[in-house]
Write a protein that binds this DNA or RNA. Structure first.
Lengths: 336, 336
DNA sequence: CTGAAAGCGCTTACAG
DNA sequence: CTGAAAGCGCTTACAG
C-alpha cells in the first residue's frame, strides 16, 4: 500500500491526486491559459507534492518537440580548444536552460557535417541548431530551408537570409586602428587574420576605413595576410621589420598574432611600444599575460552565446528575427 | 501514389519493404545477433534505401534509455572559459558520438546543481552524467547511489568509490621540480594552486616528493599558496623576490601563475631563466606566447575527455571500471 | 530465429 | 473550460 513511494509519478497519479484528467494536467504543465485557476492550482500542488517531473521522451514523441537545441561546431584544428567557443557555449547553455531547453553539444569534423550530422539534425532529433565556425554556408542553408530553425554565430559569407549574431568586427578594426593614430603612429601596418573568414575580412575593412578617414594610405607591403596563429604573427612582424622603412604601429587581427609580433620585436632587439606600437583583437587572457600587456578590442563573448540562444527561442516561438550585431570596445593597455 | 516520398519512414515502412516484422527491424537496428543474416541484410538494405533514421524519442520512451549523457560543469567564475574544459568536452563529445550517444551540455552555477539539475539528472532524462570541476562530492555520490552512471573528471577529494579520470598531477609536479634541480637550481620554491582542489594539492605533493628525493628541504617562506590566477602568481613572485635570499627556481602550479611570476621578475629588473628559472603546468597557449617560452607539464586534455566517455560507455554496458590516471609529460622551453 | 501485441508517458484534436 | 480517446514510433517479454 506504499502509495506515493518510489517510482516516478506520471500524469495518471497527478491527475488522480488533483481530481482532474490527464489532459488538464498536461495543459497546466504546458501553460495553457484556458484551465480554471483553481484546478490549475490543484494540479500544481500535486506536482509539487509528488515531486513530479515530466518525461521528456514521452512528451517529445507525442508533441514532435524534443526540447533539444544542438550546438554544432566544426572542429578540424581544435577550434573548440579556443576558449572563445567555450565561452559562447556557456552563454548559450545558460539561456537555453533558463527556458527549459537543453543544449546538445556536437563537436564534429567539418567533412562529417554533411553526412551523419546533417541527417541527424534534419530528422527531427532537435528543435533547432546553432552553428559555430561556419565553413560553408550550404549545409546550413539547406537545413534552414527544410524548416529547421537555425542561428549562426559569426556572420556568414553571403547575406543569405540566415539569422546570425556577430560582434561588430569592422567597427572593432576601426577603433583599434584609430588608437594607433591617436598614439601618434604615422606608418600603420596590419597583420590580418585569415581573410577567408568574415571576421578576418571585416577587421581588415575596419582598418582600411580608419586609414581612409585619416587620409592615410598604407603601402602594399604594410598589409600582410596572417592566419590568426602565433607563428604567422611572428613571421609577418619580422617581415615588416625587414622593410626599408618599417611601420611604427601595427594592428594585429587577434591577440595571438599580436603576441607573435611582440616576440618578433623582442628578438629584433626592439621595444613595444617605444619602437612599434601594437594593438590586438579579442582581449583574451593572452592580452593580459603578454609583456607588455596588450591594448586589444574586447567583444562580449558570453553575450554572443546568450543572444544566439535568445534568437533561437524567438524562432521557436515563430517570432520573426533579424541578425544582431553586438558592439565592440577598446581595452587600453601598455602596448599602445 | 508518391510512395517513399517526403515523410520520415517508420518501422512499419521498413518492415513492409523488407518483408519482416517491426520487431525484427528493431532487432537488426539494435544489433541483436539472433536475426537470420539474410533477413538482417534485407532490413539494412531497406533502411539504407529509404533513408531511415530512428526516432530517438520513441526509442527512449519504449526502452527507458535516452541515449543522452550529460556533461555537468559548475561555472561560478567562468571556469568554462578555461580552454581546458572545452577541450575535455570536445574529447567527450567525439567519443560519445562515435558510440551513438549524444552529449548534453549543462553549464550551471554550483549552487544550482543541487536543485533543478539534480532532479533532472535523477529523473531518467539522461543515461549518465560526467562531472567537471567537482566542488562537493555529495551530490555526485547521491546520484551515483541512486544508480545513475557517473564519471568524474579530476580526482575527487575522498576516494569514495566514484569512477574518475585524472592526469597524474603528483607525477607532473615531480618531473617539473626535477627539471629545476637538473638545471642546477639550489633554492627551489613553489607557488601552489588552490590547494583546496585535488589538482592543487597533488602538484604540491609532487614538488615535495622531488624535494625530499633530492634531500632538499624548502624553507617555509618558499612555499606560497596561490589560486591559479595570473595576479596571484605575480604577487607571490614579488614576495619571493623580497626575501633576503630569494629562490633561484620556482615551480608554479599552472601556466597562468607562471606568466604572472615572469611579469614580476621583469618588473624587478630580473631575468628568467638567468636569475630565476621557472616551470609551469598545463602547457597551454600561454606557455608558448609568454617570453621566455615556458617549460611546462603537458597533460593529455583531449585524452581526459575521451577516457571519461569511454568509462561512461563501459559503465552503461555494465562493465566494471576503475579510476584511470593519465600520464603527464614535460615540455622543455627556454624558461628552465 | 521470429511475430503479434501490449505498453512506454505524454499531447492534442475532437466533442461537449 | 474539460475529458475520453487515439496516437506518437519505438522496444520487449511472451509464445512459438
Amino acid at each position: 500500500m506504499a502509495a506515493e513511494s518510489k517510482a516516478k509519478p506520471t500524469y495518471s497519479e497527478i491527475a488522480a491526486a488533483a481530481g482532474v484528467s490527464e489532459a488538464t494536467v498536461s495543459r497546466v504543465l504546458n501553460g495553457d491559459e484556458r484551465v480554471h485557476p483553481d484546478r490549475a492550482k490543484r494540479v500544481r500542488k500535486a506536482v509539487e507534492k509528488m515531486g513530479y517531473s515530466r518525461n521528456r521522451a514521452a512528451a517529445a514523441l507525442a508533441s514532435g518537440k524534443t526540447g533539444l537545441i544542438a550546438i554544432v561546431i566544426e572542429d578540424d584544428l581544435g577550434v573548440f580548444e579556443d576558449p572563445f567557443w567555450a565561452t559562447v557555449s556557456s552563454g548559450v547553455s545558460k539561456v537555453l536552460m533558463a527556458n527549459e531547453l537543453q543544449t546538445l553539444l556536437m563537436v564534429t569534423q567539418a567533412n562529417k557535417v554533411d553526412g551523419a550530422i546533417a541527417r541527424y539534425l534534419d530528422s527531427g532529433e532537435v528543435d533547432g541548431a546553432i552553428f559555430f565556425q561556419l565553413h560553408r554556408d550550404t549545409l546550413v542553408k539547406n537545413l534552414s530551408k527544410h524548416g529547421l530553425p537555425v542561428v549562426v554565430v559569426g556572420a556568414p559569407h553571403k547575406d543569405s537570409g540566415l539569422v546570425y549574431v556577430d560582434v561588430d568586427q569592422r567597427g572593432g578594426g576601426h577603433i583599434a586602428t584609430n588608437q594607433l593614430f591617436e598614439a601618434g603612429c604615422e606608418r600603420l601596418a596590419m597583420i590580418t587574420g585569415d581573410v577567408g573568414t568574415t571576421a578576418g575580412r571585416r577587421r581588415l575593412d575596419g582598418f582600411l576605413d580608419a586609414c581612409s578617414e585619416a587620409e592615410y594610405r598604407a603601402p602594399k607591403q604594410y598589409i600582410l595576410n596572417g592566419d590568426f596563429s602565433f607563428e604567422s604573427g611572428k613571421a609577418l612582424m619580422s617581415k615588416l621589420l625587414a622593410l626599408k622603412i618599417p611601420p611604427d604601429g601595427v594592428f594585429c587581427a587577434n591577440d595571438l598574432m599580436a603576441a607573435g609580433a611582440i616576440a618578433a620585436l623582442e628578438e629584433a632587439g626592439l621595444s613595444c611600444p617605444d619602437d612599434v606600437r601594437i594593438v590586438g583583437f579579442d582581449d583574451s587572457v593572452i592580452a593580459q599575460t603578454v609583456r607588455p600587456p596588450l591594448t586589444s578590442v574586447r567583444q562580449d563573448i558570453t553575450g554572443l552565446g546568450e543572444t544566439a540562444a535568445s534568437l533561437m527561442i524567438k524562432l521557436l516561438q515563430g517570432i520573426k528575427v533579424t541578425p544582431v550585431v553586438l558592439p565592440t570596445e577598446l581595452v587600453i593597455r601598455a602596448s599602445c
